[in-house]
Design a protein around this nucleic acid. Sequence first.
DNA 1: TTGTATGCGTTATCAT
DNA 2: ATGATAACGCATACAA
Lengths: 340, 340
Amino acid sequence: MASIRDIAKRAGVSVSTVSRTLNNYSDVSKETREKILRIARELNYFPNAVAKSLVQKKTYTIGIFFGNKVNSGFDHPFFLDVISAVREVVGNAGYDLLIFTNKNKERATYTTLCRERSVDGVVLLLTGEGKKKTETLTELQESDIPCVAIDIPMEGRVCTYVESDNYHGSKEAMSHLFDLGHERIAFIGGDEISKTSFDRLRGYQDALMERKIGFNPTYVQLGYFSREKAYTATKEIMLKHPEITAFFAASDEMAFGVIDALTELGYKVPEDVSVVGFDDIKEAKTFSPPLTTVRQDKYGLGSEAAGLLLKFIENPEPEIHPVVLPCKLVVRSSTSRLKK
Amino acid sequence: MASIRDIAKRAGVSVSTVSRTLNNYSDVSKETREKILRIARELNYFPNAVAKSLVQKKTYTIGIFFGNKVNSGFDHPFFLDVISAVREVVGNAGYDLLIFTNKNKERATYTTLCRERSVDGVVLLLTGEGKKKTETLTELQESDIPCVAIDIPMEGRVCTYVESDNYHGSKEAMSHLFDLGHERIAFIGGDEISKTSFDRLRGYQDALMERKIGFNPTYVQLGYFSREKAYTATKEIMLKHPEITAFFAASDEMAFGVIDALTELGYKVPEDVSVVGFDDIKEAKTFSPPLTTVRQDKYGLGSEAAGLLLKFIENPEPEIHPVVLPCKLVVRSSTSRLKK
DNA sequence: TTGTATGCGTTATCAT
DNA sequence: ATGATAACGCATACAA
């Protein structure tokens, strides 16, 4: 409640002197400084960040967008890890996090929302349709708002993205299956719009080609990152192609759906059919059977994104380059050697 | 970038007319209104929320504190559900969410942080030590900042809390074990400071007393909501009291620890020993064996908290009353009938 | 219906 | 070393 004016009045000095004192300027005499500090404490003074933001044009706030639309739910598979990392990194630099939630603004775009709130930078953690390069995404990318996206290939003067090395992650998964003797491997992909999905599919295809096994398009279906859709797709594939001995799903959620379907069809996992997932979400470890999967460095994704963002904010002409984080195959019990 | 001044200049009117137009005041002639609106669009105008906040003393921002200290990690077991619900509810009312992260401010309290950012209200989702009624918690409770805590018994003029009906949840769990024939039931509690822990323990004790079985203190240990600590406690108890046939853990995480220990000691769950958890976190369902547990309405906790907060903000003299949400026993496969 | 003037709490520029 | 004053972008009381 107390403002610097109140302090100034009590101390018998001007507001500018108070301001300088509170901001640790050197040109304040020791006596007045101490007096002001004492009074500030007495009045239980705290600076008003809003007023400060207005004049400094800096809010020390990082915005975050989630979900599959401009505004929507928290349906990202590892929202928690990413946001936790972002929070840690930007927090240490003195920034707070603003989660955009405002739903009753039509005509709002990422850019206008950011400008309205005057955030210093923004992290994009979108899913599904939100990852499609729409007009509003392009607008943001070309704006002067520092921006880092997770898993969306955006690039601008102060805009880039962070992703996992999905291509090589996919290949590692395939290598593992090859090592176990599998060759007839089905793939349950993500969607047709995201780079993430595309890279994982490409890894699958290339692994097959390099192994001279060849790529059979009828072994591939899209599951749209949904357990249910993956379940349906698996049934369809497996009924038509009972010769398949392994499934590679582009997400753990979908791998669960694959296993659901397989189990219902009477196959045992991994005895009859092996299954590999992607992501290594929390439930992967406790699932039955524990899922072999490609682990993404979720925390790293978030901390890299935050680090880049801070660089953009603090550096007027940053070098920009997307960050690609390595994946790691985690072998558990949903895969096993092919029985002759 | 464009301000109402720019619009005013272009339109040849005063800033107040522009302001009134943009805020849908009725006393603006149709022509000037249309002209202003057109120019606003041309200039790609958006209001500056910071400036607006300064003059209106309202930020349309809800703050959230997490973790076990004033500032710390996201270690709450269902952070995601709660925050998702809060976001939904306050979002529909036009508020955004501010996650406090700022770590480099010593001497900061919940109250000063809230004042500094001028949040309109705040949600507390703390764990561990953070739930202890410290000075800074009391300060917040007694302040005029609208505040709703989850699982912490705080009450003030614009401050209350939301919790699950832990006591009856506990009793339900015990009833289930009684129904299966168990009588020698151990309890792995939470901590000694939270009401949540206390209520669950009380439910356990009362259930035992009402059943005329009596309460054996040596059957009780604290696990501090940690899988590891619960593991250790379980070993200790089970080695001393092999007559025990069931464990009731005050959280799912701890129930996992209980099962870890039991398994290592050579007991089969649920054949030899039954185990019940509390919370129904995501992994409970996929754990092996799928965990019987007491489900908390996590989303409800968040949406009730948000609803109360909005009431406090919009109503000068709200009636205050804590909200207690019912729990629900979810029977899965970690409990079974006692073998004679 | 419109304009003028003031203030929100702070920083920053320029004097003194 | 300190003070006066303008400015940030907007809302609002009051006057016209």
